[in-house]
Design a protein around this nucleic acid. Structure first.
Lengths: 331, 331
DNA sequence: TTGAAAGCGGTACCAT
DNA sequence: ATGGTACCGCTTTCAA
């Protein structure tokens, strides 16, 4: 069923059918009605490729993340997809993994698929040395980056102020008498570095010495985290509070502490990051920093619509994080 | 940059360029090389819409789930997307929510986008009364359903045997002396019903009386689950083990029991469902049924490739679940 | 208000 | 091995 069939049945030209299809005002009510009725009867949908060929777009946005099975990214994808739909945009999802070559490959793939814009989800899309591949893509289509700061005239970044969040965490723990705060992190992404810098800056500003033996890089699995803490205890290194860069690591550290007989938060308060559903699953429930995934994503989509409308938009939007208090720490 | 530009620069016809593009053998090595060099120099990618118009496909699969922010669906989407990529298929994701009209709308949307096939993820896509909308879609393009059984000659189903899993759970708990087993569930989907039927069948086969007051429907949030258990205790209703249809509910029930001073698993063993990352986050860690998301998804994708190749494939594949033992119950 | 016709950028058949 | 060309189904400009 094509536009020609509809035209023939309605006794009009394809131009008229096309006008009806696109809601052009230059069609008489009667003609319009007739054509619509036939379309409906025939269950006709216009061929998206033909339309795409003419308009050079099928209203599709490319979504890139390293792994949707990660709850943070999953939430982001969910929010973005839901925000895009009412605007008439569909989502093409690409899970790239962490390999740079793969990321490049998928960006090229999305470009080759003529998506209207790209949303890069997560700070893993900021490479340490070279972001020229992002520059290349962003030169061709609008590109919004969530939670990473890419300094390019053509990219738009929506970030959560994780530096400040971690800075505040240290301050509030210090106010409660803690000055040896264990810091757990797993990767060296932009976002991770921001948090660490916040931790360090707070120590500096408070006049606290920075104990590098308390800054621990671990693999993101339970066994490794327990082992790391074991060796810490074995060395006799002490601490009175824990900050982790995500909830899972925070919870694993709690398991280690509880197994050692510590009471949380009485002996050692613990604060996580991301405010994920895991927070409700531990005992005690986990106090955590909400990194505003929803707001970040909604903002990103709004930014995109502004760009499409040719508005002059800012290249960087920063949202504040928010501490959600549960049982593992109360201020 | 189009095929015409490349042809002109290479001094050949567009037909030849097209042949190079599609790896046709009927091109001399020299010509091929020249054309490829120019394509590379010009950073040329063929227009996907033009190609789609001719071939009536851009190699895209529609993925439907009610909500990717749910870890189960997120994992599924991740696995499917990753399995599809090497086969040359991209994924168009639609999160429908639970409203039937929306589900229909998104199926139509994917059809209108001329996707090559549909994968419905989750038992929520089996409606209780009327599945004619699925029949309509499946009549047009290959449709694979994960974790629901749709009895149509045109759909292909890949399911996990959750009936048997829950049946086995009851048996193993009974062997350990439990005959009053609390059963927590939240929705009435196909998959949920299968589990409940397994629970009931096991009672029947073991000659155990079915205590309907132990079969509790709750909302999927912590507060509601705690409240429900509260009122159960208040009524003086007792039980000696807990089965839940997902990990979150199992964990919430543990929280309730622990708060009451019960020791898990000594006093009351608890078994969850899905074997999600939540299992490692609770204390004690949660014994849970692995519902084989990965295998289900890989199988679904394999099924699809077989269908595309015109092979004669079975309409229903059932995989066995597997109990993963942790601290909340040991056999 | 309507129609005719020229693209859009490929694929594939038919000649040569 | 290569070229010419019809065709895929729509949008849009120009005329009427």
């Amino acid at each position: 069923m094509t536009i020609y069939d509809i035209a023939k049945q309605a006794g009009v030209s394809i131009a008229t059918v096309s006008r009806v299809l696109n809601g052009s005002s230059n069609v008489s009510a009667k003609t319009k009605e007739k054509v619509l009725a036939i379309m409906k009867r025939e269950d006709y949908t216009p061929n998206i490729f033909a339309r795409g060929l003419g308009l050079n777009s099928i209203k599709m946005i490319g979504l890139l993340c390293t792994d949707v099975s990660d709850i943070f990214y999953a939430k982001a994808v969910s929010v973005i997809e839901n925000a895009l739909k009412p605007l008439g945009f569909n989502s093409m999802l690409c899970c790239t993994g962490n390999n740079l070559e793969d990321k490049k490959k998928y960006m090229d793939l999305l470009l080759a698929n003529r998506v209207d814009a790209l949303i890069l989800i997560g700070s893993t899309f900021k490479e340490k040395t070279d972001n020229s591949h992002i520059a290349k893509v962003a030169a061709q289509i609008p590109t919004v980056v969530i939670n990473a700061l890419i300094d390019l005239p053509t990219t738009y970044c929506v970030v959560c102020d994780q530096f400040q969040a971690m800075y505040d965490n240290v301050h509030i723990l210090h106010k409660h008498g803690h000055d040896r705060i264990l810091y757990l992190y797993d990767v060296d992404t932009y976002s991770s570095n921001q948090k660490l810098e916040g931790y360090k800056a707070a120590h500096h500003d408070l006049g606290l010495p920075l104990h590098t033996e308390l800054i621990l890089k671990v693999n993101h699995n339970k066994k490794d985290i327990l082992d790391t803490l074991d060796s810490l205890f074995k060395k006799g290194i002490t601490f009175s509070a824990v900050l982790a860069t995500d909830d899972y690591m925070a919870i694993c550290s709690m398991h280690s502490l509880i197994a050692r007989g510590y009471s949380i938060p009485k002996d050692i308060p613990v604060i996580g990051f991301n405010n994920s559903m895991l927070c409700e699953c531990s005992i005690p429930t986990l106090t955590s920093v909400d990194n505003m995934v929803e707001s970040l994503c909604i903002t990103a989509v709004n930014l995109l619509t502004d760009i499409f409308q040719g508005k002059n938009v800012t290249h960087k939007i920063t949202l504040s994080a928010q501490l959600i208090e549960r049982d593992s720490f109360q201020s």
